[in-house]
């Protein structure tokens, strides 16, 4: 088959590995990881635009290296070529190997920040677009400069308080790392924030199955031309919208 993979750059190393090993011919396009900061609707518009830019008739399928991603894939439709999407809330499930494993880990470890090679090395991309408006990553000094001493301190406190809800940083190791620098960086970050550190062995089975065309068993959702993805808000995560 001839396949077009459109993936978030956060899975850059994992997808490149899978593409290299795929029995099929795979073209790859990576999109900035900051797309999800645009919010579900904004991300979906951009995803649809990129999918629509793929030439009709050139590929047997367009593979999406994403999950539901905060509804960023909700409402995406296949125009001329079928779309294949893993059933996953986000890249963490793709790095852990299954949506069940992700759900279990999420339930057992609330307040966890996740890191992987992509999360550590990939640029902030579009994040600047949203930071201006939400103020979430703005420093105390920047807040004071913009809003004055009193209001600046207040805003900084309000917008960073969520960090105290986090207690753990989990580094998902995929085995594709060239050396130990990623893990060391993650350990340093956990120590810096006063969080517990955990190294979790990742599992790339979903990534490899996506790129090698092994889409059975209910782990992927396939949209044929004319069909559209919908968030299902249950264990299936994503489904095909019924036609009106």
């Amino acid at each position: 088959m001839r396949l077009m993979l459109i993936s978030c750059e956060v899975l850059f190393r994992e997808m490149c590995d899978a593409a290299a090993r795929s029995p099929h011919q795979v073209d790859v396009e990576f999109l900035p990881k900051g797309l999800h900061d645009l919010g579900g609707k904004g991300m979906a518009v951009e995803m649809q635009r990129r999918i629509d830019a793929v030439p009709a008739g050139k590929y047997d399928a367009i593979l999406l290296g994403y999950g539901l991603c905060g509804n960023g894939l909700h409402g995406i439709s296949a125009r001329h070529t079928m779309l294949v999407l893993p059933r996953a809330h986000d890249c963490i499930a793709l790095l852990m190997g299954s949506r069940e494993k992700h759900q279990q880990y999420f339930d057992e470890h609330p307040g966890t920040y996740y890191r992987s090679t992509g999360w550590l090395e990939r640029g902030k991309g579009l994040q600047q677009l949203t930071h201006v408006t939400t103020g979430i990553d703005v420093t105390l000094d920047q807040m004071i400069e913009k809003y004055g001493e009193d209001n600046g301190r207040y805003l900084h406190e309000e917008l960073t308080r969520y960090r105290s809800a986090y207690t753990r940083l989990t580094y998902i190791a995929t085995g594709l790392e060239a050396d130990s620098r990623f893990e060391e960086e993650a350990r340093w970050e956990a120590a810096e924030r006063g969080w517990e550190f955990e190294r979790l062995a990742g599992n790339l089975v979903l990534v490899h199955r996506l790129v090698s065309g092994d889409w059975g068993g209910g782990d992927f959702v396939i949209a044929q031309p004319g069909e559209r993805f919908r968030a299902s808000y249950d264990d299936s995560i994503v489904r095909i919208e019924e036609r009106a």
């Binding site: 201006v132 408006t133 939400t134 103020g135 809003y147 209001n151 207040y154 805003l155 309000e158 917008l159």
Partner: peptide
């Protein structure tokens, strides 16, 4: 207005 302005007015 964005989130910071909302927070300040509410405050």
């Amino acid at each position: 207005y964005f989130v910071p302005e909302l927070l300040l007015s509410a405050r």
